[in-house]
Computed example of a mutant assay.
Amino acid sequence: MGKMKTGCRYCKTTANFKGNFNAMPPNCPTKIYSEITKNKQPYLEDEITAKIMQVADQTPFDEKGKLRSRVEELVFFAKEMGYKKIGIAFCVTLINEAQKLAAILEKEGLTPILACCRLGAIDYSEIRLPKKNPEKFVSICNPIAQARLFNEVKTDLNVILGLCLGHDILFTRESQAPTTTLIVKDRVYGHNPIKTLAKIIEG
């Protein structure tokens, strides 16, 4: 905590982006944690890591230099990595979006496998969670089952669509395949949490 108490939080420079070591503040993690930050070996020693970095670097722009949307990036990344079977772990409120994504992936020659968050139809009370109407059946989100289902069918890549905060953590922890997030849940700002940050900055 000591060294990191300031660092990036209060930095006003773009020195790291420009590679300007002299302009980096004294508490810059590049300086005080150089054994970690300057270590290139993780990207050189593992073939999968190296390939992910190479493909990620190519992902933002198409062959004509035009920016790709996030969905277009997902398709490009999956194809370049040689991923075929794509798991889509979605919130039940985003079933239409999940099905549309599946159609896009299929059109691109990929194999989507969908898993709704309410898999298993487990009632809140069955895992000792409170609910407003104890007599009424209400199924709880089941991110562990979503991940384990994908593990069972051996997906190559998993995509999160709007899982609740916490549930996304459990899903990622359980997933054997690499996982990326396409939609992050924000009930106030239409799944766009950057609006919260913009509002705070604006005061």
Rank of each mutant, 00 (worst) to 15 (best):
M1S: 11
G2M: 10
K3W: 12
K3M: 14
K3Q: 11
M4T: 10
G7F: 01
R9A: 15
R9Y: 10
R9L: 09
R9I: 07
Y10Q: 15
C11F: 02
T13P: 13
T13K: 10
T13S: 13
K18C: 06
N20T: 14
N20E: 13
A23M: 05
A23V: 07
N27L: 06
C28R: 08
P29S: 00
T30C: 13
K31W: 04
I32W: 03
S34F: 05
K38I: 05
K38N: 11
N39V: 14
K40D: 14
Y43S: 08
I48H: 14
T49F: 02
A50L: 13
A50I: 04
K51F: 08
K51R: 15
I52W: 12
V55M: 12
A56S: 12
A56N: 09
D57L: 05
D57I: 05
Q58M: 07
G65L: 04
R68H: 04
S69L: 08
V71F: 01
V71W: 01
L74W: 01
F76T: 08
A78E: 02
A78Q: 05
K79D: 01
K79G: 01
K79I: 03
K79N: 03
E80W: 00
M81C: 10
G82V: 03
G82S: 08
Y83L: 04
Y83I: 06
K84V: 05
G87Q: 01
A89I: 00
L94I: 06
I95A: 14
N96K: 13
A98V: 00
A98H: 00
K100G: 03
L101W: 03
A102K: 05
A103S: 08
A103L: 07
A103Q: 09
L105V: 07
E106L: 05
E108S: 15
E108H: 08
P112F: 00
I113R: 02
L114C: 08
L114N: 05
A115C: 07
C117R: 01
R118N: 05
A121Q: 15
I122F: 04
I122L: 09
Y124A: 12
S125N: 08
S125R: 12
S125K: 15
I127R: 11
I127S: 08
P134W: 05
P134D: 09
E135Q: 13
V138M: 03
S139D: 09
P143T: 06
P143V: 07
P143W: 04
A145M: 03
Q146F: 05
A147L: 04
F150R: 01
N151Y: 04
E152F: 12
L157S: 10
L157Q: 14
V159K: 02
L161G: 11
L161F: 11
L161S: 13
G162Y: 02
G162A: 13
L165G: 04
I169D: 07
I169E: 10
I169S: 06
F171Y: 12
R173D: 11
E174T: 10
E174L: 03
E174F: 11
A177C: 09
T179K: 03
T181M: 09
T181Q: 14
L182V: 14
L182P: 15
K185F: 02
D186W: 02
V188F: 13
P193K: 00
P193R: 00
P193L: 00
T196R: 09
A198R: 14
A198I: 15
I200S: 07
I201G: 10
G203H: 05
